[in-house]
Amino acid sequence: MTLIYGTTLLILLGSLLVGVIRVLRGPRLADRLLAAQLFGTTGVALLLILAELQQLPAARDTALVLALLAMLAAVAFVSRVWQTGTEREETK
C-alpha cells in the first residue's frame, strides 16, 4: 500500500511540474492564475495522501484549509489585478 501511495505522490508532483510550464509560458495573467489554481487542488490531493501515508490526521485539516482558501486567489485576481488594460503592463 505504501508503494501505491508513493507512486500517487510522485505522479502528483510530476503534475505540479507540468503545471509550472504554464506559469512560465503565460502568456496571459489568467493562464498563470489557472496554473496557481491547479497547484491548490494538487496540494489538497497531496496532503490527503500524506495524511494517510504518515498517519497524520492534521494533514487532512491542512487540506481542508487549502480547499477553503482555494478561491481566494481567483477572487483577488479578478477583482484587483486583472482589470482592463493592465495586461499590457506586464512586461518581460
Partner: peptide, 19 residues
C-alpha cells in the same frame, strides 16, 4: 490502488491539458 493511481493520472492529464 486503481482509484488512487487513476486519480493522480487525471491530475497529470489536467496539467498537460493546461499546457
Amino acid at each position: 490502488g486503481g482509484l488512487l493511481i487513476s486519480g493522480a493520472l487525471m491530475f497529470l492529464v489536467g496539467s498537460i491539458g493546461l499546457v
